[in-house]
Structures are given as C-alpha cells and as structure tokens.
Nucleic acid binder design. Structure first.
Length: 563
RNA sequence: GCCUUCGUAGCUCAAUGGAUAGAGUACUGGUCUUCGGAACCAGUGAUGGGGGUUCGAUUCCCUCCGGAGGCACCA
C-alpha cells in the first residue's frame, strides 16, 4: 500500500474536492488549515469565501452546499458552517483512534511518505581551516544537519557537503605568524589546542597585515607560495592543515553530523580558475588587470573572480566547486546555506554559474540564515571577538552537570539538545540574539524540556513492556482528546518544514505536543487506570514517545532515557 | 548614496491572507502525601507610525521611522 505522509489530510482533501465538484468548483488543492482555536474543529476551510464571486453565490450558501454534498464517511464526525463563510470539520473519534494504532504499528516510520523525490546536494558547515569555529559555524552545522534529515524524510536523496577554506589570504596571514613559532604549536598535546594556536596566529597575522607594510608584502608573497605549494610554506601548510582537518572530523562527530564529502578551497581553485579563464569574453570580462563578472545587466553588482595577481578569488573557487559537485552527484538541486551577509554575493555566483553551465539553470539555490549576534553586535573572527563553538558545548555541559549532577555522557547529549533546540526554534532567516543563559534554559520552551517529556513517556512505558490491543473505545475520553487531536498532525508538519526549509515549524510542533502531553500526564494517570482507560492512555503515551523521538531526530537531537 | 532584510508583551520567540494575535521568561497567586517537580494551573502584558489592496492584513503593496547586512580584487 502506498503510504501517504498524512492519511487523514489526504482523505479529507479528497472528500472536500468531491464535494466542491458537486458545487461546481474544481480545485486540485483546496485550502485546509488547522484553526488556531480548537473550538473551530480539527480542520477548517475558507474556500466558500474564495469562490463566492466566481459562483455568484453568497459564501454562506456555498458553505451550506459543501456541507450538504460532503460524502458521508467514517473520517468526519461533524461539519459546522460559520459566518462569513468558514466550514469547520471535526475528525471522528474512531478515525483518530485508528491513527493512534497506525502510529504504534509504524513506529519510527510513522508519517514518512514512501516516495522518491529529488537528488539534492546540501552544503553546510563551511568553517575555515586555520581558525577556530565560531558560533555562526555552529549554527550552520546544526541548521544544515536538521534540514538534511527533514528533506531526507520527505523522500529526497541528500548528498551532504562541507566546504572548507584551507587556502587564501587568511591562511597566509596565519602562516606568517606560525612560521616564527611552529615548535610551540607542535608541542601542544591536543588538536583543540593546536587549532586555538592557529587562531591566535591568524589574529596576529591579520593585525600585522593591516598595520605593517613589510609584513603585508611578506604575507602576499607567502600567499603566492601557498598556492604553488612551494618550499617551507608548502610544508607548514600541509602540517597545520592536517591538524585542522583532523580537529574538524572530531568536532563533527561530537555534534552528531556526517558528511558525504568534504571539499576544500585548495581543490576548487584550479578548476575554478580554468573555467573562468575559458569563459572570458562570453561570461566574464577583463578589467584593471582582473577578471570580473559584470552584474549590472542583471540587476546585480560586479564582482572580481580572478584578481590582478592571477589568483582565483572566492568567487572563482565557488564556480569550481559547482563544477566538482555536478560531477560527483547527478543533482536536481544544489542547496548552499550560509549567513545572509552572503545573500547578494550568491545571487552573482548563481547567475554567473548558470551562464557557464546552462544545464544547471534553476537548480542552484542559496539559503541565507540570520547572523548570530551578541548584545554588542556582529561577531567576526577577523576582529578576534568570537564565541568559540567547541568550548561553548563544553561550557554548557559543565553547567548541566553542575545543576543536575548527571554523568558526563548524558549531560553532553542534554547540552547539545539545549543548544540545537535554541537555534532551531526560530525562523532561520532572522538574526538570532544569542544568550548563553537562555540556551542553557532548564525550563520552558527548551531542548531539555522536550527531553524530559520524552523521559517521562519512557518511564511509564518501561512499566508496561507489552502493548495491549486497541479495538473500539466506548468510554469517555474527553480528557485525552487534546493530545489525540495533536498526534496525527506530525506528518503534515514535517512536510511543511521540508517545503519551506524551516525546521522551526517542526520544533514548534514538538513543543506543543510535549506541553499537551504534560497536561495529559497531570490529569490522566496512566498506571493507576484500568481497563479501556488504561489501554487508551498507554497507547497515547506510546505515540507521544514515538513522535517525540522521530521529531527530535529530525532536528538532529538525540534522546536520552534518563536524566 | 544605492540595494537587501528585519521591527509582535519588559526580554527571547510563534502565528501556509482567516475567526478572540499564541508561547517561554520575568512578576503575582495557586495545584500536587510525584505513573520522575527539569511538572501543572490562573493572572498582568504586544503587531514601530501613516496610507492602500481585500469580505478579512502581523502577513501583500506604498511611504516614513528604527535595527542589521551588502555594494571590485577579503572570506
């Protein structure tokens, strides 16, 4: 049997379409929503208002006709029409209970559509080697991983790509300083310290580049040497780069992130340079010794792809990267997520790349997410004012241990849940004001709250190792209806989150579900109940448990059984 | 200067053009001899200003004000 994401919505839509046809309207996807106010039903439609003028009938008359012609069925228990032209639907108790059984049967695949969708390359993370990852990178890792999981759930095949800057002026600035004290770095006993050492060197080099003319010339020369991988510069580059590459593998593992491939700027610069040079005169033009793309004809700005020294800039490297990506994977869509300060930059890259590779037209997409800010303003590793992502995780873990006295392993999971959830709960487009205290928040709308709720479900279920069978329910379950009416929405929520690349929709739903469960928990004892009442409550607890786990997993959050 | 983007309770965030704008936090007051209190309930409190489109606008359009970002060899 073909599995839909949401059975209930699919069926309801089908009935509504039939009813609309009898009224004289063909609508392939009639608008259905979950009313904000629960007393307005499980679903509501405003199509009567939409079609009133076309049908030359009053919205209320159309609403009545829809109700009149709505097929009699098991799914819908009541239909209500409301001024000025809403039709509200209540899903029947048996249909909701059937869905409850479906959740229990399908377990961690409940709501996952059995369809094959697109091949998507998703690039996220993108920290530079020779620098410490900061909180913006942490956001990118977390957001990208969640997006990958959500898109995968919806039947897409995802190729996960990381792209790291391991060459270019920033590396030269770092190595300028490293060269003078490489032994100090070699003596450090762990990778994190070595990368911190590189970060310090980068900051020193950066300062010198701006304030010391001789240093600037030396760094520019060093940059050339690194590109041609010459002499001592090449050797130091190899050595320091390997520290960093190894460190990042460790960091990714710690965050629970996996990649299909890591790309490096040192690999994209040659193909990028070649492609740009080949298209001089058609896509690119020479100007003041550099090779540029003129954006103005397209309403964009002009950018340099190869500088006057003949070195490819970030722009050319990105074109090179795109050429590598399409060789590696037969993609239908290439998604790149970065901070939104690069929004305009990416419009230019996409336009230029589409001209170079016409077969990719419409397949390149950039997703800009908000800047992570402190109360003092934007964070930049260039100015040295950073929140080190790696240490942040440790700091939060220490705080969790101090507050709750758990073991380090589960404390680390809880702290990652706290950080991930605090990043994913709001719309990605907007800037995020980072507040350490709020991220550690132990109560309220937080990761730990969701984990705690999950732990509660597990605790109850562990005392009921076998699930009874659920047939019909004759008793009053009004106290259980709140949670029952939330559960079946999970598939729809994930679908919407995937469509709009918005994990926060899922985060919001899971929080709602957890809150509803805690209310249920408060007023409906499970283990003290008997008979049908106990059976229904165990089923509900089981369903909440499964959905919380599935949903949190789609956010990249691992659950714990105890905390 | 030009372009992009965001302005929702004191603070941090929700709300595919829908009905009475929801939460958390903070503050005030409650529940429970816990199926794990990192819980639950109640109260106070908000769409930056002005126009427009619409049966209906936090959402779309215009304008003003305010924040953030970008605009040639950095990434």
């Amino acid at each position: 049997m073909l599995s839909y994401g949401s059975m209930i919505k699919t069926q309801l839509t089908r009935h509504l379409k039939k009813s609309l046809e009898k009224v004289g309207v063909r609508d392939e996807n009639p608008y259905l929503e979950h009313p904000a106010n629960e007393t307005h039903g499980d679903y509501s439609t405003s199509v009567p208002l939409k079609y009133a003028s076309r049908l030359h009938k009053s919205p209320m008359k159309i609403a009545e006709d829809i109700k009149e012609n709505f097929p009699k069925n098991f799914l819908v228990e009541a239909i209500e029409i409301v001024k000025p032209g809403f039709v509200n639907f209540w899903i029947s108790k048996p249909a909701l209970l059937e869905e409850l059984v479906r959740i229990a049967e399908n377990k961690d695949t409940y709501g996952k559509p059995q369809v094959s969708n697109k091949k998507i390359m998703l690039e996220f993370g993108q920290p530079n080697t020779h620098k410490t990852p900061h909180i913006g990178h942490l956001f990118s890792y977390i957001f990208g991983e969640s997006l990958a999981r959500i898109l995968e759930w919806e039947g897409n095949q995802i190729f996960r790509a990381n792209y790291q800057g391991d060459i270019g002026l920033h590396v030269a600035k770092c190595l300028y300083s490293v060269k003078k004290k490489i032994e100090e770095g070699r003596r450090l006993d762990d990778l994190k310290k070595k990368v911190d050492f590189l970060q310090t060197c980068y900051q020193e080099g950066s300062y010198q580049y701006e304030h010391n003319e001789t240093a600037q010339k030396e760094i520019d020369a060093l940059n050339m040497d690194i590109y041609s991988h010459k002499g001592i510069a090449g050797e130091i580059w190899d050595e320091t780069r390997s520290w960093s590459v190894e460190f990042y593998r460790l960091f990714e593992k710690k965050l629970g992130i996996r990649y299909d491939r890591h790309y490096y700027e040192s690999q994209t610069s040659a193909p990028g340079k070649g492609i740009v040079e080949k298209h001089v005169g058609t896509v690119f033009v020479k100007s003041e010794g550099a090779i540029i793309f003129k954006g103005e004809p397209y309403g964009l700005h002009t950018r340099v792809f190869i500088n006057k020294y003949g070195n490819p800039t970030y722009e050319a490297k990105d074109v090179g990267l795109i050429s590598m990506k399409k060789k590696d994977y037969p993609l239908d869509l290439s998604l790149v997520t970065t901070a939104n300060e690069q929004n305009e930059y990416w419009k230019v890259i996409i336009k230029a790349s589409e001209l170079v590779f016409p077969e990719l037209k419409g397949k390149l997409k950039h997703l800009g997410f908000g800047m992570i800010q402190l109360t003092t303003g934007k964070m930049a590793s260039r100015t040295g004012k950073i929140i080190d992502a790696f240490s942040l995780v440790d700091t939060v873990t220490d705080e969790i241990i101090r507050l709750y006295k758990g073991d380090r392993e589960s404390a680390e999971k809880i702290s990652l849940a706290a950080i991930k959830y605090s990043f994913l709960r709001s719309e990605p487009l907007k800037n995020i004001v980072f507040d350490l205290k709020m991220s550690i928040a132990k109560d309220g709308d937080s990761g730990p709250y969701l984990l705690y709720t999950y732990v509660r479900t597990k605790s109850i279920l562990s005392k009921n190792p076998t699930l009874p069978s659920l047939q019909t329910v004759s008793i009053d379950i009004s106290g259980e209806m709140g949670i029952l009416r939330k559960l079946y929405r999970f598939p729809e929520v994930v679908e919407n989150a995937a469509k709009s690349y918005s994990p926060h929709l899922l985060a919001g739903y899971l929080y709602d579900l957890a809150r509803e469960f805690n209310l249920f928990y408060q007023k409906c004892p499970v283990l003290k109940a008997t008979g049908e009442k106990r059976t229904v409550r165990i089923f509900l607890t089981n369903a909440v448990s499964l959905i919380l786990k599935s949903g949190l997993n789609l956010l990249g959050i691992e659950t714990v059984d105890k905390m």
